[in-house]
Design a protein around this nucleic acid. Structure first.
Length: 594
RNA sequence: GGCCCGGUGGCGCAAUUGGUUAGCGCAUCAGACUGUCGAUCUGAGGGUUGAGGGUUCGAGUCCCUUCCGGGUCGCCA
């Protein structure tokens, strides 16, 4: 190239008037007036208007949108009345003396504009064009700033950044593994990490004391708006700590991120909610606390009532809970039906409701309950005339799931969510175990390396439901942003947990033998957390799609075609191996075979 | 795998709920224009409606099958 840039396209200001400069960039738009051409030249720093005299340049293809050109000329102040106040470079323009065509272009399949509404598969096919759009360019730069600040904070806190392997044995998370055939050991496969969990715990045994890494994790599961099979997490682990120590580092990190990148002050320490409280008040372990409509338990009143759906739910160990919508008596039937559809989607059989009109109760529940019962429920739930009460009655898990989603739907529908707020909180004291009715077995709710807060039973029994763990989730505006725990550092306790979740000694040794052995040689008490970096960036930017903060995301069809398997199908390989992947994977394979 | 929504010129949408040569905006191409700001004006080209089958005098519109995409549940934190 002859004309190499001296400045970028967001740089030139009034003080540069008279300077001889060269700009390189893409033609954002071209306004040809016959005797005078205006070209907006764009790079990631900004847009600068170039004024071109068609007599002095060839004119033509170099001014087509998205062509890459160089412009040499003199910076000039724009004439009075022609200043563009919407642009940082709007006071000046470049009077071109020479242009060079650097990269010609075909007509692009879609226009490079901020508010593009093109279908996503087309955007992904031409990702390099999509990424030229400001919202995506901004996201990439923003993301880079996020990781920069994270590294600053962690290095400042004496953390050591360590890289852990990609090719490894299966990881102890619950998802399906991606696997890579081994060349040197034919018939065997590597699993790609779902997280560096065991490595980071081992680093504590190494004595590194404070570790962090911004790393890729891979889980072979279906995609979602906020989920990618390949994602990035901020992973950290600390020795000789309690949860508070982990909280402090993360709070400091987020505080700086929000302050420096968004100009917003987060609290120095984040509010905490126990799992129990989160469920009781919001029905979900990642509550969006930016609005009210909290759940109320009316089981006591419902237990003795004549409405079988209510009393039956309580009799069978479930509950009846309600959401009071202030002024909700105004809501039309259509909206209530839509809310019921939400409840049903999450397993509820229906959504009972009653409107409290000035002249009496209206709605299905009103018919089945006595006036006294209704008044008692109003009192218990804090409802008043003009309100709407929505009820869930079922097993607790169903009531919580359905009402939590109904609450969120109401928040959106009634526009109750204050978007200017950032509610960050810790949810703590999760149960350690969860019973899977289908499998007839206990599972680790989070993962099996979490330190229990109380005694473990000698053998699996119902008391396991009462055992809580030193577990914590970070929740931002109703998004689960991270999850961590204090870990088990005593090998005997670790073996006990394996036993309680039905993992035999042999299986435990095969999967985690190397790790259990490590714990036997002076393992320090330790704990940590992992934050989803993609989600963090997404929430900070207020985007609603994780693919918009990832340079090259996956979609269902895949932009790049996969390579043909060089050897026999993987299923056969696994058979030959008898290799134990994780239980979920095996359950799945077996189910498909049957 | 289930459910919901969608597939119409390059892109975004429309077609009075079966009715004559499928419209519009942007983009493209040609022409005009010395102060525009995602310029304006004039004109032109471009689609047979994801694919296959069926109903009908007639299908973008109805039915069946199938492919693709998005969302969601399952799954996964």
């Amino acid at each position: 190239m002859k004309l190499k840039r001296t400045h970028d396209c967001g740089q030139l200001q009034k003080k540069d008037v008279g300077e001889e400069v060269i700009l390189n960039g893409w033609v954002d738009s071209c306004r040809n007036h016959g005797g005078l051409i205006f070209v907006d030249l764009r790079d990631r720093y900004g847009i600068t208007q170039c004024q071109i005299d068609p007599a002095t340049t060839a004119g033509g293809e170099e001014f087509k949108s998205e062509t890459v050109i160089a412009v040499r000329g003199k910076v000039a102040a724009r004439p009075e009345g022609n200043v563009n106040k919407n642009r940082s470079t709007g006071e000046i323009e470049l009077i071109a003396e020479e242009c060079e065509l650097l990269g010609p272009t075909k007509t692009t399949p879609f226009e490079i504009v901020d508010d593009l509404e093109t279908r996503e598969d087309v955007r992904l096919k031409y990702r390099y064009l999509d990424m030229r759009r400001a919202p995506l360019t901004k996201a990439m730069v923003f993301r880079s700033e996020v990781t920069r600040i994270i590294r600053e904070v962690f290095h400042g806190e004496r953390f050591v950044e360590v890289e852990t392997p990609l090719l490894m044995k299966t990881t102890p998370e619950g998802a399906r593994d991606f696997v890579v055939p081994s060349r040197l050991q034919p018939g065997k496969v590597y699993a790609l990490p779902q997280s560096p969990q065991l490595f980071k715990q081992t680093l504590m045994v190494c004595g590194l004391d404070r570790y962090f890494q911004i790393c890729k994790c891979l889980r072979d599961e279906d995609l979602r708006a906020d989920r990618q099979p390949e994602f990035t997490q901020l992973d950290m682990e600390m020795s000789f700590v309690e949860p508070d120590d982990v909280f402090a580092v993360i709070e400091k990190t987020l505080h700086r991120l929000w302050n420096e990148l968004l100009g917003r002050k987060l609290p120095e320490t984040f509010p905490r909610l126990t799992y129990r409280e989160a469920m009781d008040r919001f029905g979900i372990d990642k509550p969006d606390t930016r609005f009210g409509l909290e759940l109320r338990d009316v089981s006591e009143i419902a237990a003795g009532c004549g409405f079988k759906v209510f009393s039956g739910a309580v009799e069978q160990g479930g509950s009846v809970r309600c959401i009071v919508v202030p002024g909700g008596a105004e809501l039309g039937r259509k909206k209530i039906d839509a809310l019921e559809a939400v409840a049903k989607n999450y397993g509820a059989k229906g959504l009972a409701w009653v409107k409290i009109n000035p002249d009496g109760f209206q709605g299905p529940v009103g018919k089945f309950l006595s006036e006294d019962e209704l008044r008692a429920m109003m009192a218990k739930a804090g409802a008043a005339t003009g309100d709407l009460m929505l009820f869930g009655a079922d097993r607790n898990s169903v009531v919580f799931a359905a009402l939590a989603q109904v609450r969120l739907a109401l928040g959106r529908e009634l526009d109750l969510i204050d978007r200017s707020r950032t509610d960050v909180l810790w949810v703590t004291d999760f149960p350690l175990f969860e019973y899977d009715e289908e499998a007839g077995q206990w599972f680790a709710m989070h993962h099996m390396f979490t330190m229990p807060s109380s005694e473990l039973p000698a053998s699996p029994d119902a008391s396991m439901a009462e055992v809580h763990g030193k577990l914590y989730d970070l929740v931002v505006n109703g998004n689960e942003m991270g999850s961590g725990s204090v870990r088990i550092h005593l090998p005997e306790m670790q073996r006990k947990v394996f036993e309680l979740i039905g993992m035999g000694e042999e299986e435990a040794d095969m999967k985690f033998g190397w790790f259990l052995r490590a714990l036997e040689y002076g393992a320090p008490p330790h704990g940590g957390i992992a934050l989803g970096l993609d989600r963090l960036v997404m929430v900070m930017l207020g985007y609603d799609n994780i693919r918009d903060v990832i340079a090259f995301p996956k979609n269902a069809s895949g932009v790049c075609p996969l390579t043909e398997s060089p050897s026999e199908p993987l299923g056969d390989t696994l058979d030959v191996l008898g290799l134990q992947l994780n239980p979920a994977f095996f359950k799945k394979v077996q189910a498909e075979e049957e």
